[in-house]
Design a protein around this nucleic acid. Structure first.
Lengths: 208, 208
DNA sequence: ATTGCAACCGGAGGAATCTCCGTTTAGGCT
DNA sequence: AGCCTAAACGGAGATTCCTCCGGTTGCAAT
């Protein structure tokens, strides 16, 4: 989201880092849901205006805190080793991707929660689109003719911090059970169907 | 969520209605994203405290604005006529339910968006649980032994105002296309597979 | 009618997000 | 070194959500 057409000025870069450091520390101390930009500014000895100029808004700052791992994650499934990277069968890659995504979300659950309650552009921003493109490509390889884009959205919709958190806390699911659920989901989407012979036939798979 | 162990006092009921009316009017005039509880209170000639005592928080008020239709919706799929009500085949009921849910969300898109950005208990509150129980039951009927609860969450996760709004605005999908996507999704989840886990004979292999 | 009290009312105020704008500074140019 | 301008700084303040609490009122029982 933030390319550098011109490099940042030295003081700007210094303040950016100071803000990120303070934010990381405060989150470690008090938890991400208590994150107050005013307090971060105070702690980092900069004005609030500086925080907002650097990161745009609350979601922008949160995104910055998540960005480094996101980059590593994207490298893993785009150019890394199988099963998540290229080289494995598409179905296996889908399943490995979803399992890794669940791990990633659980690891920074609070931060993702903040992102998801922010403005839509934070939730469906850069990372979402990369993940979506990736899944869409894989699904289309396995099931050409399906609505791969929609199915990819459906898989990603199940991998939100809010839902995962809810499933763990209120339904008592473990991370392993959630991953097993994703496995079943992915297999269902990706396995060729047989014509239903049950009482009332649905129509066969839709054509675009 | 709000049962009345004791009936409301007359002035309380009057104020509740006044607040709901003003909120409805202000939303119609200015849109739901501009909804300010302070302003509603001013417009309704009550103190802010009154608004919060009646509705708990912002999400509570929004929920009240959505509640009547929710009640009708629940009646439709629990005791109404097929295909959404009992009497039709489970698969057809699932598909009809999802189509109706999409319609319902689109109809009050802004309000659902507000609900989804509120605290988790607003999003996974009463209505969500009713929908989830309903879908879980139907899925379990068609596919006993599956993780019906997880699959129900997955279906509901795709039926959020944020995602639907995103699909319409950024991906250019029509409501009909979204419903068709849900059809495909539901059929995939509900159709028996060829083999649970073993590699199936006709699986296409494609990877550069 | 009167009374008593639980429920209700209103708005001041705390905390947070974000904007605006006058002031300061970094760093290239002469 | 000295200057000049675009960029960055900082904090006051507007807006919003929500809490708190002293004063008020409906209403049931006397």
């Amino acid at each position: 989201m933030v390319g550098q057409p011109q490099p940042e000025r030295a003081d700007a870069a210094r303040n950016r880092q100071k803000i990120i450091d303070c934010a990381t520390r405060l989150i470690a101390e008090r938890g991400a849901d208590q994150l107050s930009l005013d307090e971060i500014a105070r702690e980092a000895c900069v004005g609030v205006g500086t925080v907002y100029r650097r990161f745009g808004d609350r979601a922008g700052l949160v995104y910055a805190l998540v960005d480094e791992r996101e980059r590593r994650f994207q490298e893993a499934f785009m150019t890394g080793p199988p099963p998540v990277g290229p080289g494995a069968e598409p179905v296996e890659r889908i399943r490995a991707f979803l399992a890794a995504l669940v791990d990633r979300i659980v690891e920074q659950l609070d931060l993702f929660m903040l992102l998801e309650t922010g403005p839509p552009k934070a939730m469906f921003g850069g990372p979402y689109q990369v993940h979506h493109r990736h899944l869409t490509t894989l699904i289309a390889q396995v099931r050409p003719g399906s609505r791969a884009g929609f199915l990819a959205d459906a898989l990603l919709a199940s991998a939100t911090a809010r839902l995962i958190s809810y499933q763990r806390e209120e339904r008592g699911l473990s991370v392993e059970e959630i991953k097993a659920g994703f496995d079943e989901l992915a297999l269902a989407l990706v396995t060729p169907r047989q014509a239903p012979r049950a009482p009332s036939p649905g129509r066969p798979a839709a054509a675009p």
